Simulated assay, not measured.
Amino acid sequence: MSLFWRIFLLNAAVLVAAVLLLLGPVTVSTPVLLVEALVIGVGLVVMLVANAVLLRIGLAPLARLTRAMTSADLLRPGSRAAVAGPGEMAELITTYNTMLERLEAERARSSALALSAQEAERQRIAQELHDEVGQTLTAVLLHLKRTADQVPEPLREELHQVQETTRGGLDEIRRIARRLRPGVLEELGLHSALRALAAEFTAPGLTVRHHIAPGLPELDDKRELVVYRVAQESLTNTARHAGARVVDLRLEPGPGGAVDLVVGDDGRGIGGAPEGSGIQGMRERALLIDAGLTLGPSADGGTEVRLRVPATEGKTV
Rank of each mutant, 00 (worst) to 15 (best):
D171A: 14
T166Y: 03
E119G: 00
R181E: 13
E157A: 09
G134P: 14
L113K: 09
V151C: 00
G134F: 03
L180V: 05
D221N: 08
P204S: 11
F201G: 09
L185I: 01
V208T: 09
E186Q: 10
R178Y: 03
E172R: 15
A114F: 11
Q127S: 15
R167K: 12
L197K: 09
I212Y: 00
P152A: 04
L115C: 01
L113F: 02
G215I: 08
L188S: 13
S192T: 15
L194G: 04
L197Q: 05
D131H: 02
R122Q: 10
H210T: 15
Q161D: 03
R179Q: 13
L194C: 06
A198P: 06
L155M: 07
P204N: 05
A112E: 10
R146Y: 04
G134E: 07
I212P: 14
A148S: 07
L188V: 09
E157Y: 04
L113A: 10
A177P: 06
Q150N: 06
L141V: 08
E187T: 10
L115G: 00
A114C: 00
H160M: 09
I212S: 11
L144K: 07
E153K: 01
Q135W: 13
I125Q: 11
I173P: 11
P204Y: 04
Q127C: 11
A117F: 02
E200P: 07
T207M: 12
H160E: 10
V162P: 00
E121Q: 14
G215Y: 02
Q127D: 14
E119Y: 15
T136Q: 10
G134M: 03
A120I: 00
T165M: 04
L141F: 02
G215A: 10
G168T: 06
T138E: 03
A120T: 06
G169T: 12
A114E: 06
T207P: 06
L188T: 12
A213H: 15
D131S: 05
L216K: 11
S111H: 07
L142F: 09
I125K: 14
H130T: 14
L115P: 00
L137D: 03
D220V: 07
L180Q: 03
I125A: 13
G205C: 11
Q163W: 14
I212R: 02
T138H: 14
V184L: 08
A139L: 02
G168W: 05
T202D: 07
L144P: 01
T165Y: 05
R156Y: 05
Q161C: 01
R181P: 06
E172W: 08
Q135G: 04
R175S: 09
